[in-house]
Design a binder for these strands. Structure first.
Lengths: 114, 114
DNA sequence: TTGTCATTTCGTTAAATATAGAAATGATAT
DNA sequence: ATATCATTTCTATATTTAACGAAATGACAA
């Protein structure tokens, strides 16, 4: 239980991962859309997503060519409260607000050309 | 703001530091008392405490020979909510419960002999 | 003022982490 | 079947982190 709590905090202890969670709390996204906002290599974004997934914060599902990520819709209580905390905090942070503007403009059909 | 949130999560992303916060949420303690519970070197405990202090989660004050640590009594909203979250979670974890038993038995006058 | 003692800071080491690029995967579309 | 393409896994590297012991600090007591 302590281990699980540590894992949750560790997952959220990186600026880019906080940004990802705050984005997903507004909208489901695929890897290349997140990559476009964070300006990181695809493999790095994928790694961040796997850390968030392993902590139980997010889930993914296939949709044609793409793998979408969203906030875990059925979290246990530890995760649920961590997500609630994250959702309520830093809502008016400039980076977060800008990220949220960007995700409304991204088009995966244009972005995703490896 | 995002940086501050990251710092708070980083501070809480270590098992020993979570244990420290959960202990301090029951009782103010000095370094050697925490050291006795965690079974770490004094310098290591001191370092953990400084990370928690820098994140705004705890404060310290002098009391004769000792330096006491306690939960920040006047936290800003980010920290206050993080502390509330931490206070409510893993209350029935075995390690946490055992730590709390131990802090009621420690006697700094016996423990602290470098 | 000198010694004692709790704590912090410093220096070092080992382990963990963030990052990127290249190769592997796996599903879709032609 | 084969090519395409988003994503993951692998490999490598640079940075950060946790840990310890030794030395420095700073306050209290003798």
């Amino acid at each position: 239980m302590l281990d699980k709590q540590e894992k949750i905090f560790k997952a959220l202890s990186d600026k880019n991962r906080i940004r990802i969670v705050k984005m997903l709390q507004k909208k489901s996204l695929c890897v290349c859309e997140i990559k476009d906002v964070l300006k990181l290599a695809t493999s790095t974004v994928s790694k961040h997503l796997s850390i968030l997934r392993e902590a139980g914060l997010i889930v993914d599902w296939k949709d044609g060519k793409w793998i979408n990520y969203k906030i875990n819709p059925a979290p246990d209580s530890l995760v649920a409260n961590a997500l609630l905390y994250t959702q309520l905090q830093i809502e008016d942070d400039e980076t977060i607000k800008n990220d949220r503007k960007l995700i409304n403009c991204v088009d995966r059909n244009i972005l995703c050309c490896n």
